[in-house]
Design a protein around this nucleic acid. Sequence first.
DNA 1: TATTTATGATAGTAATACTATTATTTAAAA
DNA 2: TTTTAAATAATAGTATTACTATCATAAATA
Lengths: 224, 224
Amino acid sequence: MKLAVQIKMNPSLYLRDPEQSELGKNIIKHSIELIQHKGFEAFTFKKLAEAIGTTEAGVYRYFENKHKLLVYLISWYWGWIQFQINYQTNNIKDPVVKLKKVIALLSTNVEDDLNTGHVDEALLHQILISEGSKAYLTNHVGNDNKQQFFKPYKDLCNSVGAIILECNPKYKYPHSLSSTIIEMAHLQNFFMNHLPSLTDFSKSKNENQIIKYLEDLVFNSIRS
Amino acid sequence: MKLAVQIKMNPSLYLRDPEQSELGKNIIKHSIELIQHKGFEAFTFKKLAEAIGTTEAGVYRYFENKHKLLVYLISWYWGWIQFQINYQTNNIKDPVVKLKKVIALLSTNVEDDLNTGHVDEALLHQILISEGSKAYLTNHVGNDNKQQFFKPYKDLCNSVGAIILECNPKYKYPHSLSSTIIEMAHLQNFFMNHLPSLTDFSKSKNENQIIKYLEDLVFNSIRS
DNA sequence: TATTTATGATAGTAATACTATTATTTAAAA
DNA sequence: TTTTAAATAATAGTATTACTATCATAAATA
């Protein structure tokens, strides 16, 4: 039997639930491929429709615009990562070990999760690295936030913050450190591959170095 | 006599040097105001032309497209910050004091520098917070990088990295820590104001807390 | 004074980001 | 099984964006 992982999505992100139809699932699948390949700026609903074999209007029936589609994909990813974290740290007692696991999960290039048919998590991870911050770096972030578009991100930030506090209940900046870990796991990866002189990982381009850097950063802060 | 600060810009960023004419200076001045006010996505050359009282074609004679204009503004800002850092840490011997000064300069909301007539640094600082990462988070980052568009950022990262090494010559991640400081000085500020639950500065919304957080993060790492 | 150079005014194009309409297919309810 | 509703396909159309091109005029320079 297939263990179907279902991520609960905020309904105000879509007009029609893409999980409920083949066309919807195709929109998700191909938008991930296209955004990853062309970049979010060059991605259009017309190109998406062509890739699927439907029409522009068909896509608009599911998503109001490409920004909401991006936020949908990103929310999905955070929900999925949250699930991975819960699952993989479930029976770990030591909060330090737990936090290391979280850092590794956030920094490692993901493999496609076969439990989620139409979503390629490896590509989605790449989208998060290159496009993730565009979800909130907009003029309408306030409105989007009111509509709870960023709840999965905030929830994740809270979970990680809680583990940080388990490590050291007196640490003063659990949320900021948490958002720093999450953002830097992605940004140092982007820099490593595209602007290597902004990192110290230029030669080997190995994500394990990012993990070591983040562990060094995080545990020196927490333990002091 | 006026101490005119001139930031040397990469000529491949523009078609005609905007510093050399009134129209050019107006393009800089009004683009800063418009991008800050409307956000980069909603900013267009047509709106800019209307604000200045020229035509779209007039703007296109100076900048090939709005992305290059954004990169121009951001490069200008990094050049200016570099100058501020050099100037304000000039006679400081202690690298720890120097690094604290750098953190403060990067994190503090800037005042308009009256030595630079057509550039409002306070607004430009806001642009860096909200739009800064869009300069490099594109599909054409490789090409842009080849054309040296990000040199001012890299130079800054190197300078800060050098100070970090002065504090502790054995520290392993000077560049990554440096880019972490620079990015987080802006991102924690954005979060504080727009997604406060991703930070621990929600109530007071005071940038001094960001400075304290970054100092804690940085010096615990360096000194260990 | 002649001539280069920058600007202004105007037009035009291809692509983007949508909205609307109608016909057709598919699936669910009666 | 028929009726009805819902989803999709096909097509068209609009306003805005992101440009390029042309030509006249004003200002600066040789």
